[in-house]
Computed example of a mutant assay.
Amino acid sequence: MTYKITSKCISCKLCLSACPTGAVKIVDGRHWIDPNLCTNCDNTTYSVPQCAAGCPTCDGCVKERGDYWESWFTTYNKLITKLTKKEEYWDNWFNLYSQKFSEQIQKRQTSKV
């Protein structure tokens, strides 16, 4: 997901020199971020995108929204990779909720009798 320049940009040109990949361009007098060059500053020495970090308006450079489901699956996949024992996690989750579900069924059956 790349970044984009919004209408809140004050044309201070700080993002031009801050971008390590040179993705920020001025086209027809307006700032623009080339999505083919923007890497979100991944695989660089920076931990945050420099266009957003250096923006004095804090809203002049924002993440460009993509497809909702693409974003959802990206977040989901990041969370899943953090699980160290995936099979054990899902087994425990199933056992816990199936046990609670069966307890609820038993309570309903005993209350009807």
Rank of each mutant, 00 (worst) to 15 (best):
K78Q: 15
C61A: 02
C51L: 01
E87P: 02
Y89A: 07
F101R: 08
S47H: 11
V48P: 00
S47W: 13
Q99R: 07
E87M: 05
L96R: 05
Y97C: 04
S98L: 09
E70D: 15
Y76E: 12
Y46I: 01
L83S: 02
Y89I: 01
Y76G: 03
T75K: 12
S71W: 12
Y76M: 10
C61F: 00
R65A: 14
G54H: 15
K63Q: 06
N77A: 12
I80L: 14
Y89W: 04
V48L: 13
G60S: 01
S98D: 09
K63P: 03
D91L: 10
V62M: 04
E87H: 06
V62W: 01
T81V: 07
E87L: 08
N77Q: 13
T84I: 15
S47C: 13
G60W: 00
K78D: 15
N95L: 07
N95H: 05
Q104K: 08
Q104D: 08
E70T: 12
Q99M: 09
L79K: 11
D67A: 05
D91I: 14
P49K: 05
S71E: 15
F73N: 09
F101I: 12
V62N: 01
S102H: 09
P56V: 00
N95T: 01
K63L: 08
T84M: 09
R65N: 10
